[in-house]
Design a protein around this nucleic acid. Sequence first.
DNA 1: GATAATATTTAGGTATGCCTAATTAAGAAA
DNA 2: TTTCTTAATTAGGCATACCTAAATATTATC
Lengths: 225, 225
Amino acid sequence: MKNQTSQSIEDYLKAIYELSIKDGRVATTHLAKHLGISPASVTGMIKKLSQMEPPYLNYQKHQGVFLTEAGERIALETLRHHRLLEVFLHEILGFPWDEVHEEADKLEHVISEKFEERMAFVLGNPEHDPHGDPIPNKELNVPKATMICLSDLRPHQKAIIKRVRDKDPKLLRFLSDLGLIPNAEIEINDYSEFDGNIHLAVKNSSKNVVLGPRITDQIHVSILN
Amino acid sequence: MKNQTSQSIEDYLKAIYELSIKDGRVATTHLAKHLGISPASVTGMIKKLSQMEPPYLNYQKHQGVFLTEAGERIALETLRHHRLLEVFLHEILGFPWDEVHEEADKLEHVISEKFEERMAFVLGNPEHDPHGDPIPNKELNVPKATMICLSDLRPHQKAIIKRVRDKDPKLLRFLSDLGLIPNAEIEINDYSEFDGNIHLAVKNSSKNVVLGPRITDQIHVSILN
DNA sequence: GATAATATTTAGGTATGCCTAATTAAGAAA
DNA sequence: TTTCTTAATTAGGCATACCTAAATATTATC
């Protein structure tokens, strides 16, 4: 079996990479849900990907999958494309940050290495995309940052938003209307033990905001002393 | 049958548009050669495209095809994408003009209307791509220009290069090394009746060049008085 | 440890878009 | 007009990547 990629393969590998950060192995159903595809189809594809030469992933029946080195390389290349494109769309073409994800999802499979290289040059080799996610560098190393969830902050702590993980344009628009975007400074006012809601102040907009745990888990921050 | 597009369909319609400018109807084999596909495959596709609702093209067995209005619309939209992308790649990302075609050929099928619109805005609604080909405007009207082939010029005439039709990167690089790119000013020195070679001077580079008819037919110019 | 619920896989099928080989139609030349 | 050549079509296949329905593991619960 020949070793090549396709739009689909890149999507699978990227999804497995993202899901396996948390869990190690990725379950068929989990992957299926994430990709919006039936579990049966996923089984077919992961069998194929695990039988390529070299294989893109390790797979044992009923045990889920994880990436091989070759698979991770493709995933990181795709992720680099994706995140560079997000910055590019935002900075150069003026896309609002909640619209960059969808467009980058299509383009990431199509651009050439030259396009990637030119983009990185024009943008000055950015390390983070507009959502704060780290961009793998040319050697595919992912810059690590020490961040915690907004939900882990305690009252009166100040922090800077570094990353917003959600991809839903509606939520992203909601957050940016509140000023809750990467590099914004916030201060926790209160934390209600009861429902997990967090009350916080956004510095520049001087707005006071109440956020539920569904949202605060998605926002990553670094603490200000 | 539903009416949609795909990468392949857009390629077919664009090719038919380009070929039918000269000939009106486009023959199966002609199209097959242009697309690098077997004639049998082309027959299958054009049958499909002519039976859609609305049809993208008119087709009668053994008589070739021509575009319907719906087909032409898709072709022009794709062409607009393509040529805007060429300008964009050249001006914004710094691609050399001989490399823009290949990249645009892939991207043209993938970018959104928003991407197109943002590109046009950032570039200031250009009317020509780096090869001098006209870019259909938003309403898909193609700007017309009065140009003739370089091969039709007479000795001592001066002209400005408006368009270089060839897509071969090697030839394009050769021409730009000589300064023969859109907007360059040239003057015809001599024309050899015998072999069709044209001797000309390029203004800015003050080079003297001899070009054969294979090339001079591809270069379109407007005459300077 | 048996059973119920859930996860996963197998089997069989579909649409797209390409292929080769064989056939038929059209156009040119004798 | 008949024949030859070239163009176009049909027939039958293949790969990719998805689907549903049915069968089989696995895991959780009693």
